[in-house]
């Protein structure tokens, strides 16, 4: 423990997985995972369905204990969920409290952190403004579109003041236009807050567009198959970034990689 503590510093990865595996009964879902998340970087994860992307994200969140190996957060061993690690779930409709308004849902994270009532209103207003929901503070989730509900979930995660933001196919259920808008917003939010982002997606182009690195998992059992660096310039823009030769090259490499595992 002390040796780990001694290694803390700006160079320490904000999160690290060392030799971790996850089994459900006899089924090994993740095997021999070694991965580091550097401070402030945007890591995307792709892989065929069932390769363990969600399990990897849950492992980082502390919701899923490692069967073997260790997960480190801020240089110390992680034994369960930590307030500094937030998750945006894909199924926003289930992850929000239907009986609370948008403001009330954001408030939940502030209440959990013990923020005095008097200080909540300003924080809530600022967070809702960040995700473009300032005008919808009094709406219930059922009165909001899918894109708005997902923004709300992002706002609640930001209310945790996290240093790591985990997202599991957050835009998977949204239409193409809304998805592109939210991609740009999440890039802006991540850049502004300095949070480290870990983003699972099925969409290879989305992974390249957003990420500094793309981790490709191979299935049965889930392992890190390859890690692609994305040297595309920032800020990224939907038109020019997607036409960048580097973007096209990465898309081909990733496609070829995933293609090996398709039946």
């Amino acid at each position: 423990m002390t040796t780990v503590q001694a290694a803390r510093g700006p160079e320490t990865p904000i999160m690290a997985i060392a030799g971790a595996s996850v089994s459900f009964g006899a089924a090994r879902v993740l095997d021999g995972i070694d991965l580091e998340l550097r401070r402030g970087e945007f890591v995307c994860v792709v892989g065929p369905s069932g390769s363990g992307k969600t399990t990897l994200l849950r492992l980082l969140s502390g919701l899923q204990p490692a069967t073997t190996g260790t997960v480190f957060h801020q240089g110390t061993v992680q034994n369960g969920p930590a307030r500094g690690v937030a998750i945006v779930f894909q199924d926003y409709a289930h992850a929000l409290l239907p009986w609370r308004t948008a403001a009330g849902n954001v408030s939940l994270a502030l209440e959990a952190a013990g923020l005095p009532r008097a200080q909540r209103a300003d924080r809530i207003a600022a967070l809702l403004a960040t995700v473009g929901l300032a005008a919808h503070a009094d709406h219930f989730p059922a009165q909001m579109s899918g894109g708005m509900q997902q923004r709300l979930q992002i706002a609640r995660c930001l209310a945790q003041d996290p240093d790591v933001l985990l997202m599991d196919e957050p835009f998977g259920a949204l239409d193409a236009m809304t998805r592109q808008k939210l991609q740009d917003e999440i890039l802006r939010i991540v850049a502004a807050s300095g949070v480290t982002a870990f983003f699972v997606t099925h969409d290879l182009e989305e992974a390249i567009y957003l990420g500094d690195r793309v981790v490709a998992l191979e299935p049965n059992p889930g392992r890190v198959g390859a890690i692609f660096d994305v040297p595309l310039p920032r800020p990224r823009t939907q038109l020019s970034t997607r036409e960048h030769p580097e973007f096209l090259r990465l898309r081909r490499d990733l496609f070829d990689f995933i293609q090996q595992f398709e039946p």
Partner: peptide
Amino acid sequence: VEPRLTEVARLLRLSPGA
């Protein structure tokens, strides 16, 4: 109760009472 909400409670580290 929606299991997702139970996970949200765990992630936010709500006390059992909360």
